[in-house]
Write a protein that binds this DNA or RNA. Sequence first.
RNA 1: GCCUUGGUGGUGGAAUUGGUAGACACGCGGGACUUAAAAUCCCGUGAACAUUGCGUUCGUGCGGGUUCAAGUCCCGCCCGAGGUACCA
Length: 920
Amino acid sequence: MEYNFIEIEKKWRDHWRNQKIYKTEIDHSKPKFYVLDMFPYPSGAGLHVGHPLGYIASDIYSRYKKQKGFNVLHPMGYDAFGLPAEQYAIQTGTHPAVTTMENIARYREQMDKIGFSYDWERSFKTCDPDYYKWTQWTFIQLFNSYYCYDEQQARPIKELEEVFAQQGNKDLNIAQTEELHFTAKEWNEYDEEAKQRVLLNYRLAYLADTWVNWCPKLGTVLANDEVVRGVSVRGGHKVERKLMKQWMLRVSAYAERLLQGLEKINWSDSLKDIQRNWIGKSEGAFIRFPIEGREETLDVFTTRPDTIFGVSFMVLFPEHDLIQKITTPEQKQEIDAYMKWTASRSETERQSEVKKVSGAFTGAYAIHPFTGEKIPIWIAEYVLAGYGTGAIMAVPAHDSRDYAFAKHFNMPIKEVIAGGDISEEAFESKEGICVNSDFINGMNVKEGGRVVIQKVVDMQIGYATINYRLRDAIFSRQRYWGEPFPVYYKNGLPYMIPESELPLELPEIDKFLPTEDGEPPLARAKNWHTREGYEYETSTMPGFAGSSAYYLRYMDPHNNDEYFSKESNEYWQNVDIYVGGSEHATGHLIYSRFWNKFLYDLGLCVKDEPFEKLINQGMILAYSQFVYRILGENRYVSYGLKDQYDTTPIHVHVDLVHNGVLDTEAFKVWQPEFANAEFILEDGKYRCGSEVEKMSKSKYNVQNPDDLVEKYGADTLRMYEMFLGPLELSKPWDTNGIEGVYRFIRKFWKLFFDRDNNLVISDGEPTADEYKVLHKTIKKIEEDNERFSFNTGVSTFMICVNDLTEKRCNKRKILEPLVVLLSAYAPHISEELWSLLGNQESVYFATFPQYEEKYLIESEHNYPVSFNGKTRFQRAFPLDMQPKEIEGAILQDAETQKWLDGKTPKKVIVVPGKIINIVF
RNA sequence: GCCUUGGUGGUGGAAUUGGUAGACACGCGGGACUUAAAAUCCCGUGAACAUUGCGUUCGUGCGGGUUCAAGUCCCGCCCGAGGUACCA
């Protein structure tokens, strides 16, 4: 029998589907293991070879874990709400649901061809009403909760109402939008509307006027993680700052837990660091400065209370509430002009001119709490609205931004920490001795800071506090293709529709554009909400709403009464291995952790963290190939000779190039303009130039997995994608090496057949040498699998097969375990060989082969060594050993003799610490 | 700027706790089979020198250090990739 992968793969694909081999159910007799891929957004372009990289790795691991006796949950679904389908709908009028369904069908077809072991019965897409019902449900729970810092968890808002009625909001340590003060009496006298308004200040999903990233081109607001360097991640459009009433999620309340949680999960340090930076915890002090001649105070947050004697001016962000109140008539014009100027500047402009100093003086002065000095109050763009109090005390001697500002506007720079030279630049070190600083002179920075904080506490003008960079997430999008909010409005205040009415389905509308008066597309919907006479929310939820807890839904995807059953969650717990790209570090992976922690607080799920271990697969780039056209001619010159001519490089389709050599005939046929092309060759060949770029249609470098599956088979593709290099690394796709893997697969196949392609398997007892090969392979593959090192895993197989081919080994006792071993990597061929060996059940259910140590120990580098009275199989010898040849000396104890089995080694060659060879 | 990574043959990459650096594969060169090609198989392939068998020296971005032993650990640089950036 020839190795006919087309037939074999189709046969087993059908078999797996028909027999529902990959159906997973709760099984308390086995330990669970949950392996998850980040589900894809089904785009119109289909999958290219980069997409399946992570899926193949997780599939190998799932199959491996299954073989080790775990009950493995390995699901797949689609992140189906999103901008591209909606943009397409606006252009063509095709409903996003239609586009999405088509794309999903294509994705599914492509994935099926690669032989994944997903349990497709658990699959769903985020735009299914059955699914987003629970996204909406969670939103309602967020709305009905507040966050208690003392308990470090979310609590029902009802509880808070009772507390307010009894004691007002004094001394409550809870998350809030702004600081309010009211007594129980005041609360009880509020009418319903006023109470609701106050409660919004504490809800975990709340409505507030916020400065948002508004993208006019996309017609919607964007979250911080959706904006990079002042432009939108999707499309790269300009983003403006705008004050809008938006739904927000109080993610910031969870900042500390999100930070702490990182300690107990197994993610890469770099990813944890990205999250730590994003959360941005900084310890410092809140200090209240009096303003000369006014009742209002100027509140600042600083991490350097020790530098308070170096303050030479104060700065507010340009839209700060205080500005209108404190600006003096003389300065009014200047301030107004400055505010007008900053308002006109887009986020993009601001970001690109970070180094440029600008600002204006309000004419007002703050009073230094210790010295009584007058400190001028300025406004400037470099102070941010969303961080701290939106106001700073500027200490130019010890902060480079304040330094630049002081230099530019000619303000005093006063050294208060010794150790630097402030004549040229700010001294920002946090080590040093306080000078020119009254009662903290001579103390070090830390101590000085402590004393200052103590002092402001005594004076009741401040306290030590912690600030986080993490902001609340903007949760409204002015788009159609997303989850509708289960919200209606009464007198401008939001109310949730009852849970019994969920899901609130997305209505049909005639056009997907915003309305003429700028309302989101949903405002076009007619007779949608059943509540006549009330306004309803016309925004929809952002992309991360549906993707924040989808992994929980896989545990119990068809449950219509609950998000997921208690039983299923107690069994599956959380994701053991999560595989996906690191581009989600500050978006999805923060929101998911937040969402999960909230559900944990509700008592819905048993685990506080959603993803125990995270594997980041690298991006697959592509080599683009170039030909060099001589300027103004239809002649093309080979890469090595191109410098002798005046040429332009032209992208050429990668399929026309093999190992850097252009197939000139195919090139002529490729496009009409090349039909009469002439070539200047080197060594009789046309060599192309190449460059590493992202995969893109226009660069003719996209590699489609379907083509490769057709040419080499899915098993070869799977193994080759793994063989390419370490999973985490970004690397260029290079089809050239795939032949090597293909050769290996056929070589493996040939072990089972004779010259005439008859199955010939011997039942003979393998030799010790053959066992050694097998056991070494098993041990190595197991190690490679456990650390997700599938590139070395593939190599291990190759070495083993080369070895067995040389030994002409066709013994069942060797080959059968190898088939099981290989089935995680190359399931189709393994399944075929497994059944040819006479097995009835699918190889998917076979257990991982065990090895016997007696053969293993004979492998190189593992020798029994007696040390401290124990015999171990190890490489290293005691440290005092010198390099030499030892004649029998170290192998004389009883244990070692037993292993040597009467044989006497002639000579043992060691380098210090390691045996190189034993000569018998 | 700050944080995180990484730098090994012509190429992708091995080397798990410091222990024969370059596994495995591609490419390249040579050979066998063949009328020929494809396929397959075998040999060689870090560099330099030496060469009829052993062989010698140098080699993991650069410069130092620790160690019997360093790609791996420490100190100081250089370069690349990713993240982040007026976060007070």
